[in-house]
Amino acid sequence: MRDKLNIVFMGTPDFSVPCLHALAKSGHRVQAVFTQPDKPKGRGYKLIPTPVKAAAQAYGIPVYQPLSLRKGEDAARALETLQALQPDLIVVVAYGQILPVEVLELPAFGCVNIHASLLPKYRGAAPIQWCILNGETETGVTSMQMAQGLDTGDMLLAESLSIGEEETSGQLHDRLSELGAKVLLETVAGICQGTLTPVPQDDALSCYASMIRKDMSRIDFTKSAREIHNLIRGITGFAFLGGKRHKLLRSALSERTVDPALAGTIVDAKDLTIACGDGHCIRILELQAEGGKRLKTEDFLRGNSIENGMKFETEVL
């Protein structure tokens, strides 16, 4: 048994930050943080630190930002740094790089990953979005012992939560990131106490959550109302109204039924209810017109002349 561990943390985006906060406040020693290189943003292309880097600096934790852990001089220097640190454990949370076997085998307790799904379902880069796209009503966070495959390591702990009917991927992201911190602390405690029993994943139950492509956001209103609603919740949809591109940011399922031939047509301009291809409808709650601001539907309708019979199109006509 161990009371405290020396830990190297690897992560990059906002999702990773609650896990780093939890470790930094836990009494374990976070020796170093590895994160992706800073990226230029804005008109001046100013280099912006990753969210994890900013959090690490606030705690005074040394930060390393190798371009790669697998090849080149950066990888060699990173391995030398890790060998010098000799961490008991490496924690990986949405780092964005694949760890080579030399790194996986370096810590005494290996490398642990916090993944935003109930493995073996939704391995891969975009589990949160795909859960909503596929209409799942439950998801969660799994900690696993990392192996060379993509999210294929033995599972350590998992905790689930329900997905709301109108919950967006952004809202779910925030809840899962907090849950991830809780699961991580429980996992580290289990490692210290020697109480964890790794469980192999059943590959037959797995599915892959591939990266989201921009073209996936195009809305085809000939699909069912629920499919369209899930697309809007999962990745934000877009369609064309009056020749202008509109992002559809939040929606709700409507109880109204119509002729499926009206797919894409506004059937109630008072609350922006749109017909879908299965004869059901959705209501748009928030949207953003091309060149405009994100608006709630009531605000959008006050500034735009919208009438029944107008139609959202998949392509510009």
Rank of each mutant, 00 (worst) to 15 (best):
E80W: 00
L89K: 09
Y95D: 07
T314K: 15
E166Q: 15
A54K: 14
R283P: 00
F221L: 03
A204F: 06
P49L: 03
S68E: 06
D215A: 14
G72H: 11
S254I: 11
V91E: 06
E255W: 09
G277W: 06
G164V: 13
I284T: 10
N6T: 13
D259Q: 03
D203M: 12
I212R: 08
R213E: 15
L82F: 06
W130R: 15
E165H: 14
G237S: 07
H115V: 04
M10I: 06
D202N: 15
Q145S: 12
C276G: 00
K4M: 07
A189D: 13
G149K: 02
M155I: 15
P200N: 03
T273W: 00
F312G: 09
G42S: 07
Y45F: 10
G149Y: 01
D174L: 12
D174S: 11
A261G: 02
A58K: 13
E80G: 07
E166N: 15
I219P: 07
A84K: 13
A108K: 15
H173G: 04
F312T: 09
R256K: 12
A125F: 04
T35N: 13
G237K: 03
T35Q: 09
G190K: 14
R29I: 10
S169M: 09
E73Y: 03
Q97F: 05
G242P: 09
L205E: 14
Q36P: 09
R43K: 14
I163P: 11
F221W: 07
T12K: 13
A252T: 11
R218Y: 05
T137C: 00
V63G: 01
L317Y: 04
Q31F: 02
L241V: 04
V101K: 15
A252F: 01
P66R: 07
I61E: 01
K214F: 13
A189V: 00
T236F: 03
L272M: 14
G190R: 09
G96P: 08
I228F: 03
E159A: 13
H21S: 05
A125P: 08
A126P: 02
L85Y: 04
Y95S: 06
S169N: 11
N230H: 07
D174V: 12
E105M: 02
R283Y: 00
L196R: 14
F240S: 08
S254P: 00
Q86A: 15
L85I: 11
H280D: 04
L106M: 10
G96C: 10
L231V: 07
G291N: 10
T273R: 14
I232D: 01
T12F: 02
L287A: 08
A181F: 09
C111R: 06
A108S: 08
A75N: 05
A263L: 02
F238P: 02
D74W: 07
E315N: 04
H21V: 10
S16P: 11
Q129S: 09
G44I: 03
G135V: 05
V258S: 07
D259K: 05
Q83R: 15
C131H: 12
L133F: 02
P200S: 05
Y64D: 04
G303P: 00
L205W: 01
L161D: 02
I132A: 01
D38A: 15
T197W: 01
L241A: 02
F109C: 05
L99I: 11
D271L: 03
A58F: 00
A22M: 09
T12Y: 04
L104P: 13
F34E: 09
N134Y: 05
I232Q: 01
G170W: 11
F109S: 11
T297A: 06
Q31W: 00
